[in-house]
């Protein structure tokens, strides 16, 4: 997976977020404040523009630029959290020109640690971690099992999707949905849903 691959990933994310913008906002309206779709759309549109303007030369530099742009443009909790995820992944990749599935797995773990350090959320708190953590675990397992890259990304995407859906019966303990207490039960977490989109886009980038 080279710089071009990761640029394609960001393109796929931007397209998926644009297509799902209203859906994400409606999920957020149910248990939050109805701005998640609009915020991520603004952020990834800005990330795409930043990439077009700067043409980073390595996957690491590309992801750090995406992360910094998200922190600068999105606001809310999702800006710093998603921004940190991309920055940490990019930093873990270092100067490498080509990223193996094992290195991607390392990067994803770094992203997860960064998000958890900043947001202090654990699995089961009904946040983006509930999609990110299972995806990181599935990718690590796929690498250990020696799966092909496409299969490994497929496994990560499936795990993220399943993790997002599994937030429906949970009561939120972090983020704005936590203010609703028991009334947050029965709704999919918007952050977990958008995280699942990111992994769907990763799979799509691999099959380009």
């Amino acid at each position: 997976m080279n710089t071009q691959f990761f640029a394609a990933w960001i393109e796929e994310i931007a397209a998926a977020v644009r297509a799902q913008r209203d859906h994400l906002t409606q999920l957020d309206a149910a248990i939050g404040d109805a701005d998640h779709g609009a915020n991520l759309d603004r952020g990834f549109t800005a990330a795409r523009e930043a990439l077009a303007g700067a043409s980073p030369q390595t996957p690491g530099a590309l992801l750090v630029l995406v992360g910094s742009t998200l922190i600068r443009k999105v606001g809310g909790a999702s800006g710093p959290l998603y921004g940190t995820a991309f920055r940490e992944m990019g930093k873990a990749f270092g100067e490498a020109a080509e990223i193996s599935p094992a290195e991607l797995s390392t990067g994803l773990n770094a992203a997860l640690s960064g998000v958890q350090r900043l947001g202090a959320a654990a699995e089961g708190d009904k946040t983006m971690v509930d999609a990110l953590a299972p995806a990181a675990q599935a990718l690590a397992q796929a690498v250990r099992d020696g799966l092909k890259p496409e299969e490994a990304l497929e496994a990560a995407a499936a795990a993220a999707e399943q993790g997002a859906r599994a937030t429906v019966p949970l009561q939120a303990r972090k983020g704005r949905a936590s203010y609703l207490g028991p009334r947050s039960v029965g709704h999919e977490d918007p952050g977990a849903a958008s995280t699942a989109l990111l992994f769907g886009a990763l799979k799509a980038a691999a099959s380009r």
Binding site: D33, D35, N39, I71, R72, K73, V74, G75, G76, G79
Partner: peptide, 11 residues
């Protein structure tokens, strides 16, 4: 001021 109901950004 951030966007509607969205916190401002660090910049």
């Amino acid at each position: 001021p951030g966007e509607v109901f969205t916190s401002p950004v660090p910049d």
